[in-house]
């Protein structure tokens, strides 16, 4: 379980912003790869830069973030204490939804602090996979199973969102050919990463049955 959870964590970490240090993150992921699962190729520096600046950064050109709240209804029906439901509870593509609130509860219980850069997205995949790994390190397979079931069940939708971004880009090419090509490669690489992570999570789940 631990090795598989480590690989999931290492893949999740590739969705964080590493800047020039990104090769080491890939190296770690590749070193921990599970046999039979795909291993993401290391992208070129320009492609990785586009991925970080223009895909994995909120408000950027092709922003498509691996944040759970964006792919699920924002709030459950009840407002607590028998109160009225959230006015836009069914909406998606909003940050700090129920998944983020639940993760905060878990972080509090585990005495973990979310860094300021993730204040608006405590349910970012880099954090979710790290918690899964921490549970695995503690030998708590049930908690890993619950976390995967509750919080890592949306990566198909994320991969589809990246693919849709890529299709939209190809339909409306950017004026600069180099920029366009690098961003297209970055989105394709994002799809590759999401696919690899989905498969690694599936593999981890299977191992826990």
């Amino acid at each position: 379980m631990q090795k598989r959870a480590n690989y999931v964590r290492a893949l999740g970490a590739l969705f964080a912003l590493w800047g020039a240090d990104y090769p080491a993150a890939y190296e770690e992921a590749r070193a921990g790869a599970i046999e039979g699962l795909s291993v993401p190729a290391v992208p070129s520096a320009p492609v990785r830069r586009r991925l970080e600046n223009e895909v994995l950064t909120l408000g950027s050109l092709a922003a498509t973030l691996p944040v759970e709240s964006l792919y699920k209804p924002w709030a459950s029906a009840s407002g607590g204490d028998g109160g009225e439901p959230a006015q836009f509870g069914a909406a998606r593509n909003l940050l700090l939804g129920d998944s983020a609130q639940h993760m905060r509860v878990l972080y509090d219980g585990l005495e973990l602090d979310v860094p300021p850069a993730y204040e608006a997205m405590p349910d970012h995949v880099a954090l979710l996979t790290e918690v899964a790994c921490l549970y695995a390190e503690a030998g708590n397979g049930e908690a890993v199973r619950d976390l995967v079931a509750d919080h890592l069940d949306w990566l198909d939708a994320y991969e589809e969102a990246l693919a849709a971004r890529l299709a939209a880009l190809e339909a409306r090419p950017l004026p600069g050919a180099q920029h366009h090509d690098e961003l297209a490669a970055a989105l394709a690489h994002g799809c590759e990463l999401a696919g690899a992570l989905t498969r690694a999570i599936h593999d981890l789940s299977q191992s826990l049955r």
């Binding site: 770690e28 219980g109 005495e111 602090d113």
Partner: peptide, 13 residues
């Protein structure tokens, strides 16, 4: 290469 701060409460984990 971790992001969450804190030592993580072992018992809770």
């Amino acid at each position: 290469r971790t992001f969450l701060k804190g030592t993580a409460a072992t018992a809770a984990l």
